[in-house]
Design a protein around this nucleic acid. Structure first.
Lengths: 336, 336
DNA sequence: TTATTGTTTGTCAACGTTGTCATCCCACTC
DNA sequence: GAGTGGGATGACAACGTTGACAAACAATAA
């Protein structure tokens, strides 16, 4: 590899002068600068960042540890948002994917710390509680889409309760009195919070809470694509004496299944049934017919907010709720 | 930051002995080793990878440049596959996302080269031709899901022609004689190749090619979620004197729309119409009803193959076709 | 006892960079 | 012609690590 000394030899100067040119130090005669620039071009020289890092004691790198953010269609936007803000601050992100493997997680963490990352982002592909490894305390860190029960770290999570409220309120506003909820696996945080929001909306509207209208649409730990089955959930709702006229679906995949399942009962979304949902999966929501009204997960914004926090040098370890956006298409409306 | 010398002082040895312990050099007395280990623990020492890199002239990093692989639900598996093979070889991937921004692409490339990446992977989120920056030649490089017209670099791309054949053949096998194709934007490579495969399957089956059965399901450059509109495509097919009995859809999103559009004509997929498609989007294909039979893009395998190639030290610049897998669900079958 | 071997430990240089400081050259002033 | 100032350049050390080599030490053999 060509080093600064090779350039110096080629340009007939000391290597220090080359360093000055590379770093735009004004104390270089124009003539010299040009000569050095030409040598740099000719030799295709690139400064060695390892040497710079050693000298400056700075890596310019922020570690991004994710379980499967990258892989899952859900959450790639977290990374994108983080990357945007990082590059505004001339930092680069080093992304590692740990796939729920404990040993690999430790390895990855060690690797990042050996590379002297200046900060760490720990992101999950769905909203949940995580166990924070103690090493995180050695460097400024932030959690995204997950939180620590000890609240030892700042965390940026979606406001699922409010989203649950909004998804329900949209249907309340349309005059519905019997609104069902097909919920996610109750073991996950989002399920609990969205249910709470659903209840709050009912309460505020003066509607009774009917436990028979709350059914479960997935079985194991949620958020994994292909993991939901709304068949019995819909069957249960359809078996009711007084059927719901609207359904809040736990996620877009469930909503998608519901479109088809209702057809078996001769019910069409947008005609005899109104629907709202959560996530705003770009592959799903706009391609359903009628288009699915859904609460968009604020992935991009969480990623951005988390990195803005890191750069702000605040030290407020609280958990921030990031609002969903309401994406109103047609499924919450009923056509004549 | 605590360095090897701090550990040495703490353990009462020379820093070279610490280095030996860290690198598992057997030439250290057990007693000394233990003492040094304890100091390492006590001070929470971690070797500085920048210093190691300088000394060893090796970064252990492979650069992964993607347009939007990470963000797009489509292609995250390319990255996953690459990561798997890289970590088998104790290399780590440095991922940068360039979002079609020319300046950012140059910056990212410079950054990676300054970090002395040992190899580069250039990945696209859909199959297409790319312009290869000249800097790539300074380091072993490989293209994934894209290719260079000059064929100056090894490339791993999906075998779209064969997939087009397979998707059609599945319907031919079911006895269909009039098989339509709702194609992608003809400007993209996959559209052309899949069409060719479609024609080959018809030819081989002795079925006539009818241009009226080939309609277009998206307008601008494809593969962007939400970018397709199959409405007129389906309308055109339905307007034919002799309607098709089966449709090959250009991608799962189109297929998804077709499920709904056909309902307007009283036609149900799996009853009056058979369907096959491409991609195997985990969010879509299993959630449709009946389940969508689709040709799965070999993203994971392309990522793995590309990295295996890099480690093999071959220098065969040809383009490799990676086969799709046929994911047979129910949509290609007709129920009585 | 001394020589010989082998094991364990330490010294030193080098990797490529940049900050600090010293030197050099030139133009200008008195 | 000597002195002054400032702009341009260079010498050197240091960042933390490891390979090459040397030294110290202990154990064994003669």
């Amino acid at each position: 590899m060509v080093s600064i000394k090779d350039v110096a030899t080629h340009a007939g100067t000391s290597f220090k002068t080359v360093s000055r040119v590379v770093n735009n130090d004004p104390a270089v005669r124009e003539e010299t600068r040009v000569r050095v620039q030409q040598s740099i071009e000719a030799l295709n020289y690139r400064p060695n960042s390892a040497a710079r890092m050693m000298r400056n004691q700075k890596s310019g790198v922020i570690g991004f540890i994710s379980d499967e953010v990258v892989t899952q269609p859900y959450a790639g936007d977290i990374l994108l948002g983080a990357q945007q803000v990082a590059s505004e601050h001339d930092k680069i992100l080093m992304v590692v994917n740990i796939e729920h493997n404990r040993r690999r997680r430790q390895q990855s963490l060690d690797m990042l710390l050996e590379r002297r990352v200046e900060a760490l982002v720990l992101a999950s592909y769905f909203h949940r509680e995580v166990e924070v490894p103690p090493e995180l305390s050695s460097v400024p860190s932030v959690l995204v889409n997950c939180f620590d029960s000890q609240a030892s770290l700042a965390a940026f999570v979606p406001d699922d309760e409010q989203a649950g409220f909004d998804a329900t309120q949209l249907l309340v506003d349309q005059g519905h009195k019997r609104i069902a909820l097909i919920s996610l696996d109750p073991a996950i945080v989002a399920a609990q919070l969205r249910l709470a929001g659903y209840r709050r909306a009912l309460l505020q509207a003066g509607l009774p809470f009917d436990a028979a209208l709350v059914v479960q649409g997935e079985e194991e730990l949620g958020m994994t694509p292909g993991n939901c089955n709304a068949e019995t959930a819909v069957a249960n709702l359809m078996a009711l004496e007084s059927r719901p006229t609207a359904i809040v679906c736990g996620k877009d995949e469930i909503a998608m299944q519901v479109y088809f399942l209702l057809l078996r009962y001769g019910i069409r979304v947008g005609h005899e049934m109104a629907l709202t949902s959560f996530d705003n999966q770009r592959l799903i929501a706009p391609n359903l017919s009628p288009g699915l009204t859904t609460m968009a997960l604020p992935h991009l914004e969480m990623g951005r907010a988390a990195l803005r926090y890191l750069f702000s040098a605040e030290a407020d370890n609280s958990t921030r709720l990031i609002p969903f956006s309401v994406i109103a298409r047609e499924s919450h409306l009923l056509k004549a």
